[in-house]
Amino acid sequence: MTVDGTIEFIAALLMLSGAVMALLSAIGIMRFPDVYTRSHAGTKSSTLAVLLTLLGAFIHFASDQGFYSVRLLLGIVFVFLTAPVAGHVIIRAAYRANVKMSDTTIEDELKGVLQQVKQDAEADRTETGEIMSEDKKEELKHQEE
């Protein structure tokens, strides 16, 4: 096998494993019992799938046409920045909306303290839902006194 052939093979392998991983995480979304475990399959495995696919495409273009596409690498970076935020917000919203966990769940340490957590979060906001600065909080405290 020549050097070019080997590089091409590695690129193809990366893309293929990325595609297989995306397929498996899609199957995972179907099979898992509740929204929390589904998010494991949905948001996480697919980030790795995107990483592998884009890396394969990058290597392919670099070796085949001598074109180093920075945009593909930027794509990886932005997926890695945005996917966890989206996953976190979805799961947090689900928990606060009292979406039931599956029956197999054996541990839930947030259950007792959720009310407190909610209150803490609301203490930071005005009536219209904007986040208050520290100065404004002080002001409110003085008014109450």
């Binding site: 948001t43 996917a83 947090r92």
Partner: peptide
């Protein structure tokens, strides 16, 4: 933690 599969951060304390 979010990016590693198998774990999700549900809530961060204040």
């Amino acid at each position: 933690v979010m990016l590693t599969p198998g774990s999700v951060v549900v809530e961060v304390t204040q």
